[in-house]
Amino acid sequence: MIITLSIFYYLFLVAVAVFLLYSLFNVYHLLRFGFFSLINVLVIVLYVLIAASFLYFSFSILMTVDWSTPLIDFGNMSNNPF
């Protein structure tokens, strides 16, 4: 059995899911309970822009990685990636 580098990609996807969920809760709170003010609107818009740019940047970096690279090969334990 071979464990590939893709395990870290899945880890990243889980982190993105948690990030999106908590971001949604936060934005909902700011929209639902925040005053209609310039600073509140600005924070929401800026956050959405920064979050979207960061996710775009992250995925564009991670797309270049070969996730099929073996990380641990249980059939050949002497295969040390380092």
């Binding site: 990609y9 993105v16 990030f19 956050y47």
Partner: peptide
């Protein structure tokens, strides 16, 4: 790189929280 990206994701959402 993955760990750094995860760290910044959590930091970003923690900052908003």
């Amino acid at each position: 790189a993955v760990l750094a990206l995860i760290y910044y994701l959590f930091m970003l959402v923690y900052a908003l929280t």
